[in-house]
Amino acid sequence: MRFEAFTFFILALLSIAVVIAFVRLVLGPSLPDRVVALDLMTTLGIGVIAVYAIASHQAIFLDVAIIVAMISFLGTIAFAYYLERRA
C-alpha cells in the first residue's frame, strides 16, 4: 500500500517533467526544437505507462508502452524526413 503511494509520487514527478518539456514545445524558436520536445514527451509517456503498470498491478500496460515506443519512433522519423525534404 505504501509502495502504491510512492508510485503515485513518481507519477507526479514525471508529470512535472512532461510539463517542463511542454515549455520547450511552446517556446521553441524553430520547428526542430518543437519536434525534439514532442519526442521527449512521448518518451516520458512510455515511462508514465510503465509506472502506471506498477501502480495498478496490471502488467498488460507494458504492451501499450511497446506500441507507443514504436509509434513515437516512426513519428520522429517522419518529422525529420519531411523537414529535410522541405529544406
Partner: peptide, 18 residues
C-alpha cells in the same frame, strides 16, 4: 531507435539552417 531518431533530427535541423 533513440540514436537513429536523434541523428535524423540533427541532420534535418542542420539542413534547415538552424
Amino acid at each position: 531507435t533513440a540514436p537513429v531518431a536523434a541523428h535524423m533530427m540533427g541532420r534535418a535541423a542542420y539542413s534547415n539552417g538552424v
